[in-house]
Amino acid sequence: MIPPEFDYAAPGTVSEALALLAEHGDEAKVLAGGQSLLPVLRMRLNAPGIVIDISRIEEIKGITESGDAVRIGAGATYQDVLDSALVSEHLGLLHKALTEVADAQIRHRGTVCGALVHADPAGDVGAPVLALDARMVIQGPDGERTVDASDFFVDLFETAVGEDELLTAVEIPKHTGWGAHYEKFVRVSHQWAIIGIAAAVRVEGGTIAEAKVGLTNMGSTPLRATSVEQALVGKEATEDAVAEACAQVGEGTDPPSDLNGQADYRKHVAGVLTRRAVVAAAGG
């Protein structure tokens, strides 16, 4: 299907892009890789007045070291991130999760920051970014601000990024040496996650010293399973030891009920897969 008519602008700088956003207000949609936006436009479930293509802005490209963190610019595609040695070394969890995003062709175009702003609760990027305590770098008319991932995801498809703002980068603290696993549960491989579990653990002498667990599609935003994380600390990195801590991961969540599973089923599977993800992350 053909999208509805829109104007198009491809600014060369962030400030030009912000000026366009200011000018067009809610008539504007930002396009980075376009892998989520274009299907919506083709379905004609939206008809923006203008599409602002930020993929030609050089200053937001690239993946760099930024102190204790790795900074992923808004121009970086999934594939760029997957190819990054920095990410492989320090952000194993993100790397693992990105291999599960859609398919190769989509990963060649879609961007990590675009997915974060899109904030689809079934997307595979939110949970690991949330679990890894990322910081979101947002630029707007009043300059740059940083928002913790925990404050970033507001609701279904809704983030802290205002209508006149751009997410220009995400900075993710290095988790060098952490074990990681992303467990995506789908019926067929090209599906959105029915649920997903992002787990990273630091194991010391066979015992879990620290754990971070993020959940995909267990609510209207990515979730952080903090009580599970706490319960895991001090546990042996074995299936039996972590099982109890993981089983209740669904408690307090409000997952959707749809063609792929009712909420209670999702909660149950989340418990099973969290256990498996933690064990896999711990190298079990």
Binding site: R187, V188, S189, H190, Q191, W192, L259
Partner: peptide, 11 residues
Amino acid sequence: FVDYTLPTTAD
């Protein structure tokens, strides 16, 4: 094709 789930090579 998002919801009418045809299998792929990977399935």
